[in-house]
Amino acid sequence: MPASAYVRSLRDRIGGDYLLLPGVTAVVQDGDRFLLVRQSDSGRWSLIGGGVEPGEEPRAALLREVREELGVDVEIAEIVGAYGGAALESVYPNGDHVGYVTIAYRCSLTSSSFSLEDDEVLDTRWVTLAGLGELDRHGWIDRVLADATR
């Protein structure tokens, strides 16, 4: 995923060293199904989300990220939880080391159709918890989806 101007300015100063960033995650739910996206940078399945920009409210960041990635709006119902730690750390192909602390929000789509608006998302898929096991996915989403079904 492309880095924001803010993150690029930090990278200019610290290089690829570890950077901890705030994020948001959309748990888009329709009955017992959840919407996943296949990310272009890793090819793995995950939830929709991204970084919170300086001065941006997390809810506004979530609405922006969903609009950027799917071209639709969502209605935010509630916070599912906050997540971080080793499961949300990675090293990008360019060597940048990053960790995220993300707030996950339960959402519903306001439109039944959406389009992939940017190059971050290769595909979308609705899955149930039972169908998660067959997907190459980021492991941390299992915890988020389990929390969303409680």
Rank of each mutant, 00 (worst) to 15 (best):
S40I: 06
S112Y: 15
I141F: 04
Q39R: 15
P2R: 14
V27N: 00
T149L: 13
A5V: 11
S40A: 14
V144N: 02
Y83T: 06
R33K: 12
T124E: 06
E65M: 06
L47M: 06
D147S: 04
R59Q: 13
L35V: 01
E120H: 14
Y92A: 15
S4C: 03
D142A: 10
G95L: 04
G55V: 06
T128M: 08
V27L: 02
G16P: 14
I141H: 02
V7F: 08
Y18M: 14
V98H: 10
R150P: 10
R11G: 03
G95T: 05
G23I: 00
L145M: 05
G139Q: 15
L35R: 00
T110P: 09
S46G: 10
V27Y: 01
G85E: 04
T128I: 08
S46A: 13
L47T: 01
L62S: 00
A130P: 11
G139S: 15
N94Y: 13
V74A: 04
Q39H: 15
Y105P: 00
T128F: 07
A5S: 12
I14M: 09
R59V: 10
D136E: 13
T149G: 10
L10C: 06
A60D: 14
Y105K: 03
A61D: 07
E134W: 11
V28G: 01
P2M: 14
A60C: 14
E117H: 09
S112H: 15
G95E: 06
D73Y: 08
D73R: 12
A87N: 10
A61G: 04
S115W: 12
E57V: 10
R106K: 12
V91H: 07
E75N: 08
G49R: 04
D17E: 14
I76F: 02
E68W: 03
S4W: 01
V74W: 00
E56D: 08
R125P: 07
R64I: 00
E89R: 09
L35T: 00
G99R: 02
D12H: 12
V7E: 04
R33F: 05
H138Y: 14
E53F: 11
V74K: 00
G84S: 04
W140V: 04
E56L: 07
E117Y: 06
A130W: 11
I76E: 02
E57G: 14
L135T: 05
H138N: 13
L122A: 07
E120Q: 12
E68D: 08
L135Q: 05
L122F: 06
M1C: 12
L10V: 09
Y83F: 09
I76C: 01
T102E: 08
G43C: 05
S113M: 13
V37D: 04
L36F: 03
G51N: 13
G55Y: 07
P54Y: 02
L70Q: 01
A77V: 15
G49F: 02
G55S: 05
